[in-house]
């Protein structure tokens, strides 16, 4: 079984508990205007020219973003940091893009980790069919479930898709008693305001089951470079990153409602 992976990052410390390896699968059904991994949206591998300076001379080489990899190849890398997962209560996180866009590949990866006794987390936007969730659920120890906006119209405007399916899937996972961390990107012009966040909080309160944790992810500019590199339009050009202090009001909305909430992953 093969799939398209665009990066594997070891010593990931913001993608779930403990020390983790994050495997980024390529392709995403959403197209959020603030996306910090814009090269991950398209499922196909992309090639870019990169330059390296050695002394005063420049050398160009072609970088392939997105590599076709076998399950075994991915697992071979993931397994290397097993001792760190064991020591820290970490594991592997599948992220993207949207990992559920390659469901069969993802299932094989999760299953292989599960057999190795490696803790698995899935970082997902939740925009998928319930049948796919049913397929992978058993092998997923933790869902890092993105929730972006309560208003479906605004959601569609800014991400390209409405949110009904997403909320339905979230409810489903909660009903199935899966472990869930909600991840809320806090984005200027989109949901960086109290009202939207209060609505979001109310929705989360109304859901069945237990939300272990809420992570607020303040908008950062680390992706800006990528827009330049891949020649893509950056709608966030010039927007400064949000600080911990900027989101403190939002933090307290959730905190006061009794949620276990943190800023950053």
């Amino acid at each position: 079984m093969k799939g398209i992976v665009f990066d594997i990052k070891r010593f990931a410390v913001h993608d779930g508990p403990g020390i983790r390896t994050t495997v980024f699968l390529k392709g995403c059904p959403l197209s959020c205007y603030w996306c910090h991994n814009p090269e991950s949206i398209d499922k196909k591998p992309v090639q870019t020219e990169r330059k390296v300076k050695v002394e005063s001379e420049f050398f160009t080489y072609t970088e392939q973003v997105g590599n076709i990899m076998y399950v075994d190849e991915v697992i071979d890398i993931v397994k290397r940091d097993k001792i760190f997962y064991e020591e820290s209560g970490g594991g592997v996180t599948f992220s993207g893009g949207e990992p559920l866009i390659q469901p069969a590949f993802l299932k094989q990866l999760l299953k292989a980790c599960w057999h190795e006794g490696i803790h698995t987390a899935l970082d997902t936007c939740g925009y998928t069919q319930q049948e796919i969730l049913e397929e992978i659920m058993h092998f997923t120890d933790l869902f890092l479930f993105d929730l972006k906006h309560i208003d479906s119209h605004k959601h569609k405007q800014s991400t390209g898709v409405p949110n009904e399916i997403i909320i339905k899937n979230l409810k489903y996972l909660l009903q199935m008693k899966k472990r869930i961390h909600i991840r809320i990107p806090v984005i200027p012009w989109f949901n960086f305001n109290e009202n939207d966040m209060i609505e979001m909080m109310k929705l989360l309160q109304s859901l069945p089951g237990n939300i272990e944790k809420i992570d607020l992810l303040p908008y950062h500019t680390l992706g800006n470079n990528k827009y330049k590199r891949f020649g893509m339009t950056n709608y966030m050009e010039g927007v400064t990153a949000l600080s911990k202090e900027d989101v403190s009001l939002i933090f307290h909305i959730f905190k006061n409602a009794g949620f276990n909430v943190s800023i950053g992953g």
Binding site: I19, I83, F84, S88, G89
Partner: peptide, 19 residues
């Protein structure tokens, strides 16, 4: 910056020492 990161560093040290 945060306690969790410090704890992860502790785990990193423990892993190296286990090896």
């Amino acid at each position: 910056n945060d306690d969790e990161a410090i704890n992860k560093l502790t785990r990193l040290i423990r892993s190296y020492f286990r090896l």
